[in-house]
Simulated assay, not measured.
Amino acid sequence: MLIDKLVCRQRQQVAQLAEQGHQQQQLLLAHSRLLRQRALNFIGSAPGLTLSFSAGVLFQLRHNSSVKTVRRLVGLRWIRLLY
């Protein structure tokens, strides 16, 4: 009888945890859909297109010595701001 109660309680806990897991999965899916939609909206906007174009230009010039120097200097500034 005691074992039956414990087993019943464990089944209830498992069912609750399964339901929580399902709800969390649905919430995560909704968040990922919302994030994807926001990203698509941003990429289609003027600031998004500007950022994308700038990143493409910088990617093309990534081996240029002046770009490497600027990246090093900006990196050092970020490191200094952290400390």
Rank of each mutant, 00 (worst) to 15 (best):
I3C: 03
I3W: 06
K5C: 02
V7D: 09
R9C: 08
R9G: 04
R11M: 09
R11K: 15
R11W: 04
Q13D: 08
V14Q: 14
V14G: 01
V14W: 05
A15C: 02
Q16E: 15
Q16K: 13
A18H: 11
A18Q: 15
E19H: 08
E19W: 05
Q20C: 02
G21N: 14
H22W: 06
H22K: 14
Q23S: 09
Q24C: 06
Q25D: 13
Q25C: 13
Q25G: 15
Q25E: 15
Q26M: 10
L27K: 15
L29V: 02
A30G: 10
S32V: 09
L34F: 03
L34P: 00
L34E: 14
L34A: 13
L35F: 02
L35Y: 00
Q37I: 07
Q37F: 07
R38C: 12
R38D: 13
A39S: 12
N41F: 01
I43W: 05
G44W: 04
G44T: 06
S45Y: 03
S45D: 05
A46G: 03
A46V: 02
G48H: 02
L49P: 00
L51N: 10
F53N: 11
F53Y: 13
G56L: 05
F59E: 10
F59N: 10
F59V: 03
F59R: 08
L61V: 00
R62K: 06
N64G: 00
S65Q: 08
S65E: 09
V70Q: 01
V70D: 01
V70L: 07
R71N: 08
R71W: 05
L73H: 04
L73K: 09
V74W: 03
V74K: 12
L76D: 12
R77W: 03
W78V: 07
W78K: 14
I79R: 14
I79P: 00
R80A: 15
R80W: 14
R80G: 05
Y83F: 15
